[in-house]
Computed example of a mutant assay.
Amino acid sequence: MEEQKITKIPFGQLGIIVHDSCKGLGKKVDDYIVNRRREEFASSCSEYHVDEIKDSYIIDSKIVRFANGEAKAQLKESIRGKDIYILADIGNYNVTYNMFGIENRMSPDDHFQDIKRLISAIAGKARRIHVIMPLLYEGRQDKRNSRESLDCAMALQELENLGVENIFTFDAHETRVQNAIPQTGFESLHSTYQIIKAMHRVDDQICFDKDEMMVISPDTGAMDRAIYYASVLGLDVGLFYKRRDYKKIVDGRNPIIQHEYMGAEVAGKDILIVDDMIASGGSVFEIARELKKKNARNIYVVVSFTFFTNGIEKMNEYYEKGYITKLFSTNMTYIPQKFKDADWFEEVDMSKLISLLIDTVNYDDSVSPLLDATNKIKKIVGK
């Protein structure tokens, strides 16, 4: 048999800069790439593959914090001519630093500033720079209402001005924010396939059948996502509409008066509530309670990012009462151990998809197959 020959050539030697906020996920991503390239290039004798087989592609880097809170980024190895991917979780509030003897938790603003510091430390020596920010910085502030800042658009323009060629995120709150950087690559990937796969693995009794399950959107903003889930799974879709009090503003938002349901009968059916994130969890709790009043069976919540900014006590209560059966969420932002230990929580690992994304872009292949997992989902449903 003729020896297999691999002819594709990377755009540049791969280098991954993993910010302190993303160490765990970054290690998993790196392991996937190392193992994949060892297997792929095992039978290749091409000279241009020799340098591509490494024990790790992570660039040794460090954020040095001064006692007054200021900081600088350091790269401890050469990045000249490399194809650099910066991986950071701007939502990781578990990273701390010391300022004037006081321990402070890093905010999304601190993390984003560190991303810019790392780009500045590269100093134009890399062949190409990409930023992988699973949780999009200021993604919730994507449009202006009255006299408000446009934080997400400004942040993207800052990255563009610093020479970033591609920005990758997951389940962006509003993908049209990319209009702020028309000359820079912007892709919002989805976790749908990985979540459906996790649901199938965790509970083989879940039946993705039109007579047994429905998809529910918790608000109008998540309707596109709910429609996608419903279409690939062949299910009906329903919607909860938030009636707000537009005379008041609480914590920067108009408070919700009531959730109104629009859709088919939910009695006796399993429910799939889909959204991009859970912040405090208030809306999900109220919707789950309303669905149970309508005699829904099992309620599964699937999101890309979970915060529970007010704690998980109410989630524990709703699980014990049987209002919510399971919560499926990805590991693309920080998850406290108490979440992972809870019976109601199932973590969805996204490291393989991120590693495929890095490999694909490094070899200048199309990312379109990674953006659409419809056929893969239908195979799971078919099983």
Results as ranks from 00 to 15, higher is better:
residue 3 E to K: 07
residue 3 E to R: 15
residue 4 Q to V: 15
residue 5 K to Q: 04
residue 16 I to Y: 06
residue 18 V to K: 07
residue 21 S to W: 05
residue 27 K to A: 11
residue 32 Y to W: 09
residue 32 Y to Q: 10
residue 47 E to N: 13
residue 53 I to P: 14
residue 55 D to Y: 03
residue 57 Y to R: 02
residue 59 I to T: 05
residue 64 V to K: 10
residue 69 G to C: 08
residue 72 K to E: 12
residue 74 Q to F: 01
residue 80 R to E: 00
residue 83 D to G: 01
residue 83 D to I: 00
residue 84 I to R: 01
residue 85 Y to E: 04
residue 88 A to L: 07
residue 91 G to I: 02
residue 93 Y to L: 13
residue 96 T to E: 10
residue 96 T to H: 07
residue 100 F to R: 13
residue 112 F to K: 09
residue 113 Q to G: 13
residue 117 R to S: 14
residue 127 R to D: 13
residue 131 V to S: 06
residue 135 L to C: 07
residue 135 L to D: 04
residue 136 L to W: 07
residue 138 E to S: 13
residue 141 Q to C: 08
residue 143 K to T: 02
residue 143 K to S: 09
residue 147 R to S: 06
residue 154 M to F: 03
residue 154 M to A: 12
residue 158 E to A: 11
residue 168 F to P: 07
residue 172 A to W: 07
residue 177 V to H: 00
residue 181 I to M: 04
residue 182 P to L: 15
residue 193 Y to S: 03
residue 196 I to A: 10
residue 211 D to I: 02
residue 221 G to I: 03
residue 222 A to Q: 09
residue 223 M to W: 02
residue 224 D to N: 05
residue 234 G to C: 09
residue 240 F to L: 12
residue 261 Y to T: 01
residue 261 Y to F: 08
residue 268 G to R: 12
residue 269 K to P: 01
residue 278 I to L: 10
residue 287 I to S: 01
residue 307 F to I: 10
residue 313 E to F: 11
residue 313 E to H: 08
residue 314 K to M: 12
residue 319 Y to A: 15
residue 321 K to S: 07
residue 323 Y to D: 09
residue 326 K to F: 06
residue 337 Q to I: 06
residue 342 A to L: 07
residue 350 M to C: 03
residue 350 M to G: 06
residue 351 S to N: 07
residue 360 T to M: 03
residue 361 V to A: 06
residue 363 Y to P: 05
residue 370 L to M: 13
residue 381 V to I: 15
residue 382 G to R: 15
